[in-house]
């Protein structure tokens, strides 16, 4: 430290530099593409020396794909059915235990049917952890990007989301999670290929079995097909 006051002056130089740089970025933008392109909303670029803020709520930042807020359920738009099988894994992994699922039961056999009768998420309790989406084996629950769900009234009616409110078409999911969607399609294709191969193998095996049991009593023919079971959750 030399002369008293030089430290302060040096510091003021830094402040001045920042002040100028804040506007320099805007001038750059005006010079280049004002009126042609909208202002880039994700301005947090390390090469940028100016302001890094956006004018919320007039402007919204673009959320990265992985961003998670609260979950939504995915509806398969091809079949019109929800993908959820009410396996209950998401309810188990949810740390604050804010997922409530009522499983559908077959009225006759009392066996569980792979679809939820009721599905509630208490979003005022949800801690936005993303475990439900991460551990759902059927890609049936995903994390939303919409963070503007504030409610001024009753928590029970406004913030406890029921199945209807949670359900979104898979096109919406594909729109906000393009990479995840691509992976899903890939998985589906691989699954189908596997199933096809398995089915072919089964046909071959059946043919063999039929040939072997051709002389025996056809007990198998009288057996009724079992009701569809929910696909087993993956091994823990």
């Amino acid at each position: 430290m030399s002369l008293l006051g030089t430290g302060i002056l040096k510091g003021l130089g830094v402040t001045l530099k920042h002040f100028i740089q804040t506007y320099a970025e805007d001038f750059k933008y005006i010079g280049k593409k004002a009126g042609i392109e909208p202002r880039p909303l994700r301005r947090q670029n390390p090469a940028n020396h100016g302001m890094v803020t956006v004018e919320y709520p007039r402007e919204h930042m673009v959320m990265p794909e992985n961003f998670r807020y609260i979950p939504f359920l995915v509806k398969d738009s091809a079949t019109g059915e929800d993908k959820c099988t009410s396996c209950g894994i998401c309810a188990k992994v949810c740390p604050p235990q804010c997922i409530w699922i009522v499983r559908t039961e077959d009225p006759v056999t009392k066996r569980p049917v792979p679809a939820p009768k009721e599905f509630h998420i208490d979003t005022s309790v949800c801690m936005n952890c993303g475990f439900c989406a991460e551990f759902c084996p059927f890609d049936a629950i995903k994390m939303d990007h919409n963070y503007e769900i504030t409610s001024m009234s009753n928590r029970q009616t406004e913030l406890v989301f029921d199945k209807d409110r949670l359900m979104m078409p898979d096109t919406y999911h594909a729109g906000i999670h393009p990479a995840d969607w691509a992976r899903e399609l890939e998985d589906k294709k691989a699954d189908e290929a596997k199933k096809k191969a398995a089915a072919e193998a089964k046909v071959a095996a059946d043919a063999k079995k039929a040939a072997a049991a051709a002389t025996g009593a056809s007990a198998a023919a009288t057996k009724t097909a079992p009701p569809p079971k929910p696909p087993a959750p993956p091994a823990q």
């Binding site: 209950g88 309810a91 188990k92 949810c94 409530w100 009721e118 509630h120």
Partner: peptide
């Protein structure tokens, strides 16, 4: 946890 009230009969 997990609480038994959440699934399969999880009436909120």
């Amino acid at each position: 946890k997990p609480y038994d009230t959440r699934w399969p009969a999880g009436n909120h």
